[in-house]
Amino acid sequence: MSVPQTAILPGRGGAAGTAADLFWRNPKVLLALLLIPPLLWLGIIYLGSLFALLAQSFFSIDEFSGLVKYELTLKTYRELLNPANLDIIARTVLMAAAVTIAAAIVAFPVAYYAARYARGRWKALFYLGIMLPLWSSYLVKVYAWKLILAKEGILNWVFEKLHLTWLLEAYLSAPVIGGNSLSVSYTGTFLVFLYVWLPFMILPVQAALERVPGNLVEASADLGATPAQTFRNVLLPLAMPGVVAGSIFTFSLTLGDYIIPQIIGSSRLFIGQAVYAHQGTAGNIPLAAAFTVVPVVIMGFYLWGAKRLGAFNAL
C-alpha cells in the first residue's frame, strides 16, 4: 500500500518543500516576492522617470547659454501660457473633441449591430473585424491614408470619376477646415485620427451594449415607444458609460500624438509636436516637460468626470 496511515504526514523535505511550507505559513512573504520585481520596474524606473520629467518643468532654460538652469521657478509655465502656446493647446483640444464626437457617431452603429444582431460566426467575424484594425500597425495605417489623400491618390480619383471635383475644391477653399489639398488640411488630420482611434471607441461601446438585455428594447417597444424614442430613452443612456470609456482613449490618444499631424496636416503644431520640437532640436527640456503636463492635467479632469459617470465599469 502506497498510502500512509497517519493523519498528519511528514513534509516533503528539501529546499522546495521547506520554502513551500514557509510561503504557506507566511503568505505575505510570497506576496512581497511576487510584487517586488514589477514594483521595482514600474514604481521605481517608470514612475521615477515621470516624476523626474515633471520636476524638469519647474526648471527653466537660460536664454543666453541655452542650458538648463537647475533652480525652481515657474518661469517655464509662464512661457507655456503665452498666446502662441495657448493656441497650440486650444487647437489640440478642439481636434481631440471633434475626433471623439465623430468616433462616437461612427462607432455606434457598428457596436450596436455587433452587440445586438451579430450571431455565431458573424459575431466572431465582427469581433476580429474590429480587433485586426485595432492591432495592426499604427504607422501602416497612417501610411495608408497618405496614399489615400495624395493628390494623385484614390480619393481625388473617386471625386473626379463622379464629376464632383468642384465639390472637393469648394470644400478645400473653406476657411480653417480647408487647405491646398486634403493631405495638408485639418480635415485630413481629422480623418486619420478618426480612422486610427475608431476601434478604441467601438469596443467599449459594444461591451456596454452587450450588457443591455434585449428584452429592454422589446419592453420599450411594447410600451409604445417608436424606435427613435427607444434609442433616445433606453439605448443611449445605457450605452453612455461605454461611449465615455471609449472617449477616454480617443481623447487621450489624440492629445498626445505627434506623428499624424506631422505627416498629414497643416504646418501648425499640436501639443505632441511641440513637445517633440522642444525636447529635440530646441533642447528646451523644461518647456517640453511643461507641455506634457497639459495632457496629463486635461486627462486627469477627464478621468475624474468619467469616473463620476461610472465609465470604468465598461472598460
Binding site: 514600474l42 524606473i45 517608470y46 521615477g48 522617470s49 515621470l50 523626474a52 520629467l53 524638469q56 487621450s252 490618444l253 492629445l255 498626445g256 500624438d257 505627434y258 505632441g272 513637445v275 517633440y276 525636447q279 527640456i285 517640453a288 516637460a289 506634457t292 495632457p295 496629463v296 486627462m299
Partner: peptide
Amino acid sequence: PIALPGIITGIALRSA
C-alpha cells in the same frame, strides 16, 4: 504606461 500618451512615457524615459 499605456494610458498616458506615448510621448510622455517616451520623453520621461529619455530624460531619465
